[in-house]
Structures are given as structure tokens and as C-alpha cells.
Design a protein around this nucleic acid. Structure first.
Length: 438
RNA sequence: CGGGGCGUAGCUCAGCCUGGUAGAGCGCUAGCUUUGGGAGCUAGAAGCCGGAGGUUCGAAUCCUCUCGCCCCGACCA
């Protein structure tokens, strides 16, 4: 993509409304634009990252055995009356009336809808288990939206629902998803910390929140260092020992932290304290919805079995804020490579110079041919402006070509994260990024 | 939902107290000069001063009402 043609409205100054760093940087880097309080448009650069985050989530859901579907944003109030949540949910739920005076709502979550779908088609014990998920926009009418996309009213969420025959199977589904979450967040360059959680309005008796570590995070976490060291690929979700271990380890947010228990259970050298941002939560809630909504299957012995359910959410749009909170410096964003909007930023320092232009155009074509995602700054701007823009949007590699480099046939490569610079031939530069392209 | 703050050019803000022809910096347009860390000079364009009422000869400025946005708290993916 040529920057001269790209819609990338960068801001040199901090917008007054943005207080926290991720919000400021997303606005300054031209990723989002606010439409109303807590509601944002996603501009091309922001959308590219959103899609990458979404894709990683999708791949790990699929790998965990879940199947993707897509439910609507608008739901009939009827289903929520059936589960009893229509009255319980409060003003956070955006209620709408259609032209026929039917009560509708913009979904804040989808337990009712998915249960309705499953109960309509799943009739036999042979049809279970099932795990179904979708990635869809949700709306929660927060009293006070803030922190940009981290606490918007409209947000993109992955929500998955598991349906099992009995509790042991449902708990295994829970821990399968648990392991998938660890992997998902790690793939984005984050450090996930799973914290035991209350089940809140969703209900149930087993739940974990996933926080990712960020110095600017909203909550304070106290945890056993072993929690972070756990390798999710070794988790056997069906093992009662593993389940017990995970369910009982010490990790708590400040509200639920018990210093005495922390000290009693965790050796001093393993006690950790950090700030985090919540990006996901998993619940096992048994028959809370399947019971009132009559989601049952016929068992082998002609009995009726009420499905055992769990639900699993990831705040996809919120993750962008969390990733930036955990990956930035004074100059701007530092994207982890798997979610970077482009892998390489190619800078022509002297756009008016024919030789520079030729060298850059050539390298740009080769990068594209090699399948490397590249943003090419071909604008006629001052060098400083180009460096600053590239640092701000935080692409992992900056390829710089100026009059000096052209004379020596070298490309200067800057690693955005480490700041290290090296000079390579165009061929070597190409090999550097083409080789490791995912 | 309680408390506080702010709405003036695309962005950051001054002007308001003490009413009298709407400002600055950045950005934008044109030209010239520059060219390795947000360039310089010159000339421009750009605003229903959030909206509605009121007071006044006269309102960005004073009064009333309203809408929007931000911050702290309670609440939350």
C-alpha cells in the first residue's frame, strides 16, 4: 500500500478527549474515529489490526473444536423473558421496539439465542457434545464509556457456547477452552493471567477471567508465578487433577485479593503483583439456561437429559487497546508482529529524487511479490515527519532508503521494538522479512 | 446514576470575568527555498463561537433551558 493513496489521518497532537495511552495512540495513528460516546468507526489501519486479532481468535477456536456460526445483533425480547434475564439485565441492555411494537434488543450477549438454536435441532444424546461460537458486535449501554475501545458501548466479541451431556464433559469443555484462551493471547504477544472470577449476571459456579499484563492496566493482580509459566499445550482438559490444579491456584484481582491466603499458599519467591486488563472470561454454568429454556435431549434409556452448558467470551475490539497498552513507547505503538497492520514500513527519504524513487519502487514491488505486507511512504514529506509517522503507527520493521543508501546500495533497517538499526543490501533486507513471513 | 469540567477553524487552545466588526499555533492550498528525526519564507482558504429562548442599541462574552463530550466515583467484556 502506498501511503500517498492510503486513508490514514494521523494526528500530531493529542485529542483532548483521550486520556489513556491506547486511546490516544489509536486516534493519533488514524485507527479509529469516535462516532458517539463509546461507539467508534474503524478506519483502514485499525480495521486491519482488528481483522488480524479476530483471525487469531478464530483459528484457536477452530483448533479447540468449536464451530463458527453467526447470530444477529438484534434479538427478540421473548427469548430473554423465557430465561428470566429480560427483567434482570437492567438499563445496560439497549431495548428497541420495531414497527409492529414488538420488543427487541441489541444483544449484549447470546446465551438465549444460541440455546434456542440448539434446542430446536439437537434432540438426541448422539448429537452432543457441541461447541459453537461467533464473532459479532455487541452493545452494552454503559453508563460511562471510557478508555476508547477498551470500554466502549459497542464492541466486537467472540462468544462461544458449549453443550454437553453431563457435568464432567462440560467441565472438560471448559478447560479445553481455557487452554485455547492461553494460546490465543500468547499468539498476540501478550502475557495472559487467568484469575478466578465471580460468575456475575451470567450465572454458574466455575469461572475465570483472563487478564493480560500491562503496566497501565485497570486492575491490580496478585498471583502465583507458576500460573504464568504453565504451558497450555500440556493441559489435559479431561484430567481431574489438572482441573483441580487450575481451579485452585492463586490468582486474584485486587477486589478479591486476600493477603493472608496469598502468603499462606504461595511461597514468597513465587508471589507476583502486576497490573492487568481483562480481555476474556470463561464460565461453566450447568443448566442455568437449558433448564428454563428446555434445552433437552433424549438419553439412551428414554430419559430426558438437560444440557450442561458453558460460555466463553473474548473482547476482540478491547484486545486492541490491551495490546497497545502493553506494547508502546513515547513515540507510538509497537505492534507484535502477528497483529501488525503491515509488517514493513518502507520509507523513501527523498521522494523527489529519481534514484531514491527507483530503488524504493523496486524494493516495494519485490516485497509485495514476496507476500510481505508493506506500507510504502512515498509522500514528499520531510525525513523527520516520515520517521515520526512510522514510529507512531508502529510497524515492526522500517526499511529506510535515502540518497546515502542509494549510493551504497543499502537499505537501513530499523527494528521498531529494539530500535536497532542495520544496513543490508536490498536482497538481504527482503530475505530478512520474506523468510519469516507467517 | 451522584460529583466535577469542557463545547470557539480539521487538531490543540486563547478570547468570556469587565458585551462593541472572531484570534494564535499546528494542519490545509499555491509559489519559492529546503531535504537522514515532526523544515523556512511569502501569499491564501477555512468558523451559524454546540443548539433554543431571553436581557441589551449591540451577545462567543450576561441569564434560562437543552444537547453533546470528558474526568472522579458506583458499575462492567
Amino acid at each position: 500500500m502506498r501511503l500517498s493513496a492510503y486513508f490514514l489521518p494521523l494526528l500530531k497532537e493529542n485529542p483532548a478527549e483521550a486520556q489513556i495511552v491506547s486511546h490516544r495512540l489509536m486516534l493519533r495513528a488514524g485507527m479509529i474515529r469516535q462516532s458517539a460516546a463509546g461507539i467508534y468507526s474503524w478506519l483502514p489501519l485499525g480495521l486491519r489490526v482488528l481483522k488480524k486479532v479476530e483471525q487469531i481468535v478464530r483459528e484457536e477456536q477452530d483448533a479447540a473444536g468449536a464451530q463458527e456460526l453467526l447470530m444477529p445483533t438484534l434479538q427478540p425480547a421473548e427469548l430473554w423473558r423465557e430465561s428470566g434475564r429480560y427483567e434482570v439485565y437492567g438499563k445496560e441492555m439497549l431495548r428497541i421496539r420495531d414497527r409492529h411494537d414488538r420488543d427487541m434488543l441489541y444483544g449484549p450477549t447470546n446465551e438465549e439465542l444460541i440455546t434456542d438454536i440448539v434446542r430446536g435441532s439437537v434432540k438426541s444424546y448422539r448429537d452432543l457434545p457441541k461447541m459453537l461460537y461467533h464473532i459479532q458486535w455487541k452493545f452494552r449501554d454503559e453508563v460511562r464509556p471510557r478508555f476508547g475501545v477498551m470500554r466502549g458501548r459497542e464492541f466486537l466479541m467472540k462468544d462461544c457456547y458449549s453443550f454437553d451431556l453431563d457435568k464432567p464433559a462440560a467441565v472438560a469443555s471448559y478447560f479445553r477452552m481455557f487452554a485455547a484462551y492461553m494460546k490465543t493471547f500468547k499468539r498476540m504477544g501478550l502475557t495472559p493471567i487467568p484469575v478466578r472470577a465471580d460468575t456475575g449476571p451470567i450465572g454458574g459456579d466455575l469461572s475465570h477471567e483472563f487478564h493480560v499484563q500491562a503496566d497501565t492496566g485497570e486492575s491490580e493482580l496478585f498471583y502465583d508465578a507458576d500460573v504464568v509459566k504453565l504451558d497450555e499445550s500440556n493441559i489435559d482438559p479431561t484430567s481431574p487433577d489438572v482441573q483441580k490444579y487450575i481451579a485452585n491456584w492463586y490468582a486474584a484481582t485486587d477486589e478479591k485479593h486476600d493477603q493472608a491466603e496469598f502468603e499462606a499458599r504461595v511461597p514468597e519467591e513465587r508471589r507476583r503483583r502486576a497490573r492487568g486488563i481483562e480481555v476474556g472470561q470463561v464460565f461453566y454454568f450447568g443448566t442455568k439456561y437449558s433448564e428454563p429454556m428446555k434445552a433437552v435431549v433424549a438419553g439412551q434409556d428414554k430419559t430426558q437429559i438437560t444440557m450442561e452448558m458453558g460460555s466463553y467470551g473474548i473482547g476482540v475490539s478491547r484486545l486492541l487497546g490491551a495490546i497497545i497498552e502493553a506494547n508502546h513507547d513515547d513515540n507510538g505503538i509497537i505492534w507484535p508482529e502477528p497483529v501488525a497492520p503491515f509488517k514493513v514500513g518502507l520509507i523513501n527519504l527523498r521522494a523527489a529524487d529519481a534514484k531514491c524513487k527507483e530503488a524504493c519502487d523496486d524494493l516495494y514491488a519485490k516485497l509485495q511479490k514476496a507476500g510481505v505486507e508493506v506500507l510504502y511512504d512515498d509522500r514528499d514529506e520531510s525525513a523527520g515527519a516520515k520517521f515520526a509517522a512510522m514510529d507512531l503507527i508502529g510497524l515492526p520493521y522500517q526499511f529506510v532508503i535515502g540518497p546515502r543508501g542509494v549510493t551504497n546500495n543499502v537499505v537501513e533497517i530499523k527494528n521498531r521494538r529494539s530500535g536497532e538499526k542495520q544496513e543490508l543490501s536490498p536482497e538481504a533486507a527482503l530475505a530478512l522479512v520474506a523468510g519469516t513471513n507467517a
